[in-house]
Nucleic acid binder design. Structure first.
Lengths: 157, 157
DNA sequence: CGTATGTCAGAAGTACTGATATTG
DNA sequence: CCAATATCAGTAGTTCTGACATAC
């Protein structure tokens, strides 16, 4: 299992190539690992990322139709139904008909929902503390800024 | 649907909170969008991320057992079987018994496999060009370094 | 005997498509 | 008549668990 130069196309001393290739996998690998940790800790309290996303969207933008939540979170309208069923069952949101447009529901976050959001947010903050552990304050801010710009660009088109 | 201060717990002027919350979703959202684009373009040529990961691992570390590939890529041994079946069917890898340990197979990348890797790598490079578009050369390097350190830390324990 | 390897069968989560009834 | 909304049914792909035979 030792070095067989014929069969390796990344040779030692060929660093730029190797870095580029690692780069291609970097985002995916990082995201996968971060996602795994986050999912793990959220399921430990009976939640999903989607719960967090919905509660965050409601907290940020106020009461909304389901279509509005779907647009803001990227969750499919069809999948949102189940997520809202769960959140409603937990008392975290209220779902009522919209008097102004009878096709729509108005989804409203409750006190319990705000508290739940705080709980999930603390968990995710813990995760990203763990993830960011090797970075300084300045570097975390750099990473935040770079990712924000990348994300804005991707969301924009 | 206008501002209802009672129901929003992110208030204007409460910026730090909002940033923190956005931060929690940032990696996930970015990863999701990058992943979607990458998957889309790879399936267009009949490939998956896992194909790329396996070929990259073989290129980087040379011939390996399936367990070795699983360790390096994070793909489960059970799932690797199908991935290698596909790669073998395409002529991209050879799978033979290990004379030194009859439990193991030795997986070797072929010439065609190296070419295939180049093809997939070009596709993913294109994706990350698209992703990194708003960043300067220096900033890309920064992002690369930050993610590398985060990733190393996560992989290490 | 306990452990590692490759393989298979299947569960659980996620992402997505399509159809439908209701309403605008 | 066309578009949007909430909902449901079902597909596809990913992640992960468990079992098993073989070999160390």
């Amino acid at each position: 299992m030792e070095t067989n130069a014929e069969l390796r196309f990344f040779r030692v001393g060929h660093t730029p190539e190797r870095l580029r290739h690692q780069f291609s996998r970097l985002i995916g690998m990082t995201a996968a690992q971060v996602g795994r940790v986050a999912t793990e800790r959220l399921t430990a309290v009976g939640a999903h990322k989607q719960h967090f996303m919905v509660l965050a969207a409601l907290g940020e933008f106020g009461p909304s139709s389901q279509a509005g939540i779907a647009d803001r979170t990227g969750i499919f309208r069809s999948d949102l139904v189940a997520v809202l069923n769960e959140l409603e069952a937990g008392g975290y949101v209220r779902r009522g008909p919209d008097p102004a447009d009878k096709r729509r529901n108005v989804i409203t976050i409750t006190e319990a929902g705000a508290a739940r959001f705080g709980e999930l947010d603390a968990i995710l903050t813990g995760v990203h503390e763990h993830v960011m552990a090797p970075l300084s304050e300045d570097e975390r801010e750099q990473l935040f800024n770079l990712l924000t710009r990348v994300n804005a660009h991707l969301a924009g088109g």
